[in-house]
Amino acid sequence: MGNTSDLIQKLQDLFPGLKGEEGGAMPGLVVPADRLTALMQELKEQRGFNFLADVTAVDYPEGDKERIEVVYHLMAVPAATELRVKVSLDRQHPEIASLTGLWPAAEVQEREVYDLMGVIFTGHPNLQRILCPDDFSGHPLRKDFQPAATEGGQ
């Protein structure tokens, strides 16, 4: 994976503030939220990561590093090289640019993250709940969400 450190190095020149994560099973990038779209466009159009494999988010409610991380997995098709991209968002007002302009595949996946984690994707054409009912309140995958008791007790 020598190419990976090269790639991270080159991207760091283009995107100041970008951090590389190596050592895991997959190389990763952590990018400031305002540079996400530009980075993704670069990765898609210049670096061969043409496929949006997954969009999800993780909630970290504790301590002074309280945040919501949105996690994107990209893949180069057909080489099957994988890359992880993360952005860290303010947990009280998580907001990030939508990637639907680059990949229509983001449309349903971002709706899911909005529904279950409460992240607002600006520029999304139809940001509504997708799995929970429309009148549902709260975002169930937040760590402080208490699942309601069902029939038969609290």
Partner: peptide
């Protein structure tokens, strides 16, 4: 698990159905 996310192919494939 602190967090487990499942990327189900049917979910994304269905997302392409309108198209």
């Amino acid at each position: 698990p602190y967090r487990l996310h499942i990327h189900g192919p049917s979910f994304v494939n269905l997302g392409a159905l309108p198209r």
